[in-house]
């Protein structure tokens, strides 16, 4: 059974059809890439999956349970964590605080009114661990507002990882990173997530990284699934060259 199934999802914005009947299955333990040109509807599909807005039609099924139209916080607590394309973690906090809050959020444990955040040692430990995974452990006491974009991106990923998610959604995890940072992030995603058995659904414009990381690729174009297959098949698909690779490959 697929960990996540998206069935015939439609979503339009003021008459503009952003998703026109998208179906997708993410197998447990797989690294599934969602690719396509700008405006293809990738982020919109992520938003539908995480409940940021409900689809006009169609359904989202996670672990065999329909979660269509669930509010975002409930979806997150099921173990479905996301890192956003535009990483804007909590700007008024320190790095450690943002990740600790995330940990408590996933656990539904933010209704403590009197104990200080610093007394939640289990959450602090989990935060430290997640920061170490993305290589930000020595930045834990910095203000989020002082971080450069590359670090913000990694912090946002840490805020997803700290959930110990069953399904991790990464929306363009390499966007805005320098070449060195990209290599590092790709290596990190491959080794670490494999070791922990996390299932990954991600979007990325970096073709090289996609072909390196993914074992399943879905190509989205103008709100429709153009083709789906393993990296080898996709690489040789002519249609895809036109839409996704833009003829450069």
């Amino acid at each position: 059974m697929a960990l996540l199934a998206v069935e015939n999802v439609y979503k339009s914005f003021q008459g503009f059809l952003a998703l026109a009947g998208v179906s997708l299955e993410v197998a447990e333990g797989s690294f599934h890439a969602l690719v396509g040109p700008n405006g293809a509807g990738k982020t919109t599909l992520f938003n539908v999956i995480t409940g940021r807005f409900p689809p006009d039609r169609g359904s989202v099924i996670f672990q065999g349970k329909p979660i269509t139209g669930w509010p975002t916080h409930r979806v997150a607590r099921l173990g479905l964590a996301i890192s956003f394309q535009r990483a804007q973690p909590f700007a008024s906090m320190k790095v450690r605080e943002a990740v600790t809050l995330a940990r408590l959020g996933y656990a539904g444990a933010t209704f403590h009114l009197l104990r200080p955040l610093g007394a939640f040692t289990e959450a602090l430990d989990a935060a430290r661990e997640a920061l170490a995974k993305v290589g930000l452990e020595d930045q834990a006491d910095r203000r989020v507002s002082e971080l450069p974009l590359g670090d913000l991106k990694r912090l946002d990923v840490a805020m997803a990882l700290v959930a110990k998610p069953k399904l991790l959604l990464l929306d363009e995890p390499l966007a805005g990173l320098s070449r060195a940072e990209r290599r590092r992030m790709v290596g990190f995603i491959r080794e670490l997530l494999r070791r922990e058995g996390v299932t990954l659904l991600f979007t990325e414009h970096d073709t090289e990284a996609v072909l390196e990381l993914a074992d399943r690729i879905t190509v989205l174009h103008q709100g429709r699934v153009l083709v789906e297959g393993n990296p080898e098949e996709i690489r040789h698909d002519v249609q895809v060259r036109a839409a996704f690779l833009g003829g450069t490959a």
Binding site: R52, P71, T72, A76, F84, Y106, D156, M159
Partner: peptide, 9 residues
């Protein structure tokens, strides 16, 4: 949006 995506209602 970020807060709700980390489980905060």
């Amino acid at each position: 949006a970020r807060a709700e995506a980390v489980g905060v209602d």
